[in-house]
Write a protein that binds this DNA or RNA. Structure first.
Lengths: 122, 122
DNA sequence: ATTATTGTATTAAGCGCTTAATACAATAAT
DNA sequence: ATTATTGTATTAAGCGCTTAATACAATAAT
């Protein structure tokens, strides 16, 4: 099942984002083992080099740990994951509110629209 | 004043987005004249070719009209602008809600977080 | 001990984006 | 009539991203 990748942004940044979401949602719990670079690359239908680049970025951020020859795993630090999750959520909201503000919506309108849509999604 | 451009996405798409926001917010009202490609390029601190590309995209979307030698202007069709504005807003919200859902937040949490942040921004 | 799997590195090619330097035709401004 | 301004087009260069094809060292699995 190839992942949902658009062409309007570098692929590796999208991989970083999607893997982050999987970590935050518990698809890959703290301490769990990740598939190999090659397997993940095939799963996402990208070149291993590109997946490698995404994983390297995640390691740089401290979310993932590399064990030289036995693959990679998610950090054991659950509170750190929780922190990163909260930060991502806040960044998303801030960016969204800022864009809506620039479009000329005021707070009241924004809240009305979002509650309506949230309910529609069941 | 150079515009706020990041390096994680093509510049021309960011120009499209920012110009759209200016149209939606009324900075450039329906029917109003736009500065020349060269002027806008200098204002945003990008190459004229890049700005040209952004403007061509906006014209393709019908938001802007080109008058061969007397520059460009915003469409007179105010209702069409309003429609595009609403669509952009909904797309933003949908994308945001989807990302939050993938992170594992439920509706109630999302609404709590966003109302809190919206109030903080005054 | 041998084999398979791990992350990692390198090289070459192709692609789109961006910039820079020009040039041109059409026409608005003078 | 002349000049300046408009959008537009072209060419060349550089850059980062992505892929493909390999290769290697370390070590887990057998």
């Amino acid at each position: 099942m190839p992942w949902d990748l658009k062409s309007d942004r570098p692929i590796y940044t999208q991989l970083v984002e999607q893997i982050k979401l999987m970590v935050f949602s518990g698809t890959y719990p703290p301490g769990s083992k990740l598939p190999s670079v090659r397997d993940m690359a095939q799963e996402a239908a990208v070149n291993p080099n590109t997946m490698q680049r995404a994983l390297a970025k995640l390691e740089e951020d401290g979310l993932i740990i590399t064990h030289r020859t036995s693959g990679r795993s998610i950090t054991e630090d659950a509170s750190m994951i929780e922190l990163a999750k909260t930060k991502l959520a806040q960044d998303q909201i801030f960016e969204f509110l800022e864009k809506m503000r620039l479009m000329g919506f005021d707070q009241k309108e924004i809240l009305t629209i979002i509650t309506t849509m949230a309910k529609e999604l069941k």
